[in-house]
Design a binder for these strands. Structure first.
Lengths: 118, 118
DNA sequence: AGGTTATATAACCGATCGGTAAAATGCAAC
DNA sequence: GTTGCATTTTACCGATCGGTTATATAACCT
């Protein structure tokens, strides 16, 4: 198994609506498993599992407050996603820019292996 | 199956490095399955599957060019992700602002086992 | 000690995932 | 037509996912 880098884990963690809901809720303040399970049809172990996924993705951290283990958001956890999105956005608009420029100036082939859909 | 909205599908699609590589490669121009499989250790059916996932996520569209079926990027496919990230970012910085204000008034010692790089 | 509460783990389940090999389809050219 | 190429579909596989119930820790409080 390849490393399974943070970007993989972050995207995978965010792909689940329950997990995104947990993050959103944590935005209103740290919360323990019971509190999180309260606003959800899921059972407490399910929430614990989701928290573990979010933790491994770096999106939350668990603390210790008495017998509770409140989860809190980790801002840095979104950085890999943020970065990837920025880079990709740049590349894509690059491509679209080039396409537009190309179409505006001259309707024929440019370098080596471009697409010719006009 | 519940709705499984576009955001779910987009995040899930992006969670796979092979799929992200395909997107990046498509940034350099449309490509068919054979071309995509060429730069990968995977077989063609595997690529076809990945393309289907990307297509259902709205991140690519398939065309028709002779007997090829080239895939091309779909810029709009990233919009849901973009939106979610923007919204979440806003909410989180909100929370961190409040946290800083709070910390300024009272020091705390709750955390025990996290790796927060200053 | 015992009891209550918060959380985690274990064992299990069906569904989905990522991959394969092999067969089927589609399309072009001879 | 048949041949040849690009692509998809069809089983099939093991692994992971998202959920459950039941049980085990762990921390608090009498």
């Amino acid at each position: 198994m390849p490393p399974d880098d943070p970007l993989d884990r972050a995207f995978a963690a965010l792909a689940d609506p329950t997990r995104r809901a947990i993050l959103q809720r944590l935005g209103a303040g740290d919360a323990g498993v019971v509190e999180l399970a309260g606003g959800s049809p899921l059972t407490q172990p399910a929430i614990t599992k989701h928290l573990k996924v979010l933790e491994r993705a770096g999106l939350i951290a668990r603390g210790r407050d008495g017998q509770r283990r409140p989860a809190r958001l980790r801002l840095e956890g979104l950085l890999p996603v943020d970065d990837w999105l920025r880079r990709t956005h740049a590349e894509w608009s690059d491509r679209f820019d080039r396409l537009e420029t190309h179409l505006a100036s001259q309707p024929e082939a440019t370098t080596s292996e471009e697409n010719r859909d006009a």
